[in-house]
Each structure stands twice: as C-alpha cells, then as structure tokens.
Design a protein around this nucleic acid. Structure first.
Ligand SMILES: [Zn+2]
Ligand SMILES: [Zn+2]
Ligand SMILES: [Zn+2]
Ligand SMILES: [Zn+2]
Lengths: 159, 159
DNA sequence: ATTCTGTCGATATCGACTATCAGATAAGAA
DNA sequence: TTCTTATCTGATAGTCGATATCGACAGAAT
C-alpha cells in the first residue's frame, strides 16, 4: 500500500505533477477498493469520508490525470458512468470482464487469453494492436439457478 | 432492402408494435448506412432529410424499441455517444471491432473468433455466456506509416 | 359519437461530465 | 524574508446526450 502510493508519487513527479493531499486521498481510495470498479461519484463519496473538504471537480481531475499517465484505466460497462481501475503493474493489456446480466456483478479474468487472436488480427487486418477490451455478458455461477430463460435478458444495454 | 423492412415490420407486429412512417424512415436510414455505426444524432439528421417533421425523441424511442426487440445493437466506442448497428441476421453474438487510435475508423471482424475462449470461460468460471464484446484499439493499416510512437496514443479514453 | 390505446413532436428535465474563475498553495528568484 | 510565478483547488455554471413529460392526434373498439 505505502509502496504503491510512493510509486505513484514518483510517476507523478516524473511528469512534474505533485502528489497533493487531495490526489493522495483519491489514490488511497482507489487502492483500498481496487477490485470494485468505482465510478467518479463513488470515489468522491469515499474520499469525502476522509477529507470532507475535497471537491468533485478535483476528483474528476485526479482521475483524468491518473488516466493520462496510464496509471488507471477508464472503463465503461454500459450503465452510463465511467468506472476506474488500476492497471495491472507491468501488464501490457487490460484484463477481461464477466458481467452478470442478472445481478450485475463484474468478475475478472486476470490472464490475457487473446494472444492467438491478436496475432491473427495483426496479420489478417494489418492492424497494430495497442490494447483491447473483452467483456462477456451472461449469467454468473451465483445466479444460474435463479434464471430460467437467459434469452430474455438480451436487453437493450449499451456495450 | 424491401425484404429487410418487411421482416422488421413483422418483428414489430409480433410484439404488437406498428411500423409507423417515422419508424420506417428510421429503419431505412439504418439499413442504408449499415456499416457506419451511426449515433442517434446521425440518424436524426439523416431521417430529417426525408421526413423533416420527425422529432428527435421519436428517433430515440425507435432506436430504443429496435434495441429492446434485439433488432439492433447499442454500441459504445468511448466517444460519449451511443451508436447503433443491425444485429447480423441469425448471428448469435456480436461481431468484433478494430478501432484506430489515430484516425478513429472502426473496422469489423465479422467472424466470431471467440469460440474456444468462451468454452474456457464457461468451464473455468461457471459463467453462462449470452453475448460478448471484443474491441481492439491500435493503428490501422491506413495509418501505420504516419504513427511513429504508438505508445503515445495510450491516452485516457473510456472503453 | 365516445372512449381507449398507442404514437407523435416539442420541450423541460436529468445526470455525468467539463469549463471557468477566483482564491489557496507551493516552489523560485531577488 | 518578500515578491513572483506557476500549479492546484473548490464552487459553480455550463455542456451535452439521453430521458421524462405532456398535450395532440389517429385508429380501433364499444
Ligand atoms: Zn449474477
Ligand atoms: Zn476490472
Ligand atoms: Zn487509422
Ligand atoms: Zn460493427
């Protein structure tokens, strides 16, 4: 934890940015909820618990900054809000997500399974891949007994 | 074309919806620009050329209706607007997209290359897949000579 | 004719996000 | 120190895509 904060502080100062108290509070909230895919509003409310004087704009600015420096990723799960998560340290690509259409839970596949497909894309389409996003929509193991007609869940969600 | 319109008319009436002139105009615009990933605003402007009396709300309502009936898909390419495209007839799953970070073009992989990975997900995570989204971000063949440092393009886009 | 239902266009409203701007803060120079 | 400068912050107004609301209208049913 302290290690990660220190590391991020260095990444910031390498680009002539300071780890201000507000930025540090935001980073700590992200670190403490690393598996939760928080929205900006989520982060704002959590930061406010520790530092009530912080403004929403500052949270947005900090998230944008961390995103610009490739420290965190912006995610979109089709619910209209941008969510944020740390990039895996050293990982080249984004990991994959499993979204349950019944309970909304987002699980993760931390391994990158797209290697062979990427090779095929690069060759067949002459497309140089920098990153990818892969999301599966379906019924998670916790819900499978409660859903009778999965086809009914093919709604009108954005993705 | 006429065939597709007729088919959509039947899909609507099967759910007790009518293919009104406004809805038909919207459907035709979608059909005539099938490869373009139009936004609601795009559709609105194109429909207005033929039927100037149509309202923006009606376009949104029609797109939502077509989406509910699984006739079209809602897409999000990280630029803040929802885009729409027809579902491939009979295709179980959504196709894949290649987004160029330099020129913004969206190309398509119409084949489904995820079969083996889906099997693995279903088994390993006990997750019943209903649909998926796969997007590659990178440099398209048209831009590859103009981009020297692809790493620089790893911006803060939502995806 | 009268009611009911579905649909329409116009427009107000919503919510996530961004831009603006005056004041605070921190680093440098004198 | 004191002045200067650039960076950062909080409050808030504004933007923009999307949705909700509402009165009007057409077709079907009674
Ligand atoms: Zn579930
Ligand atoms: Zn994740
Ligand atoms: Zn390109
Ligand atoms: Zn497409």
């Amino acid at each position: 934890m302290e290690e990660r904060v220190k590391q991020i502080k260095q990444q910031l100062s390498a680009h002539n940015y300071k780890l201000t108290p507000q930025r540090e509070a935001t980073v700590r909230v992200l670190l403490e909820n690393e598996e939760d895919h928080l929205s900006a509003e989520d982060v704002y409310l959590l930061v406010k618990e520790k530092a009530p004087e912080i403004g929403l704009a500052t949270v947005y600015r900090t998230l944008e900054l961390l995103s610009d420096l490739a420290i965190i990723h912006k995610l979109n799960f089709g619910d209209g809000v941008t969510r944020y998560e740390f990039r895996a340290e050293g990982a080249e690509h984004h990991h994959h997500h499993l979204i349950c259409l019944h309970c909304g839970t987002v699980d993760e596949i931390t391994d990158d399974w797209l290697g062979p497909i990427e090779k095929r894309v690069e060759k067949q389409f002459d497309f140089q891949i920098i990153d990818h996003r892969l999301t599966f929509h379906g019924i998670c193991h916790r819900c499978k007994d409660q859903v009778k007609d999965p086809k009914k869940l093919v709604g009108s969600k954005v993705t």
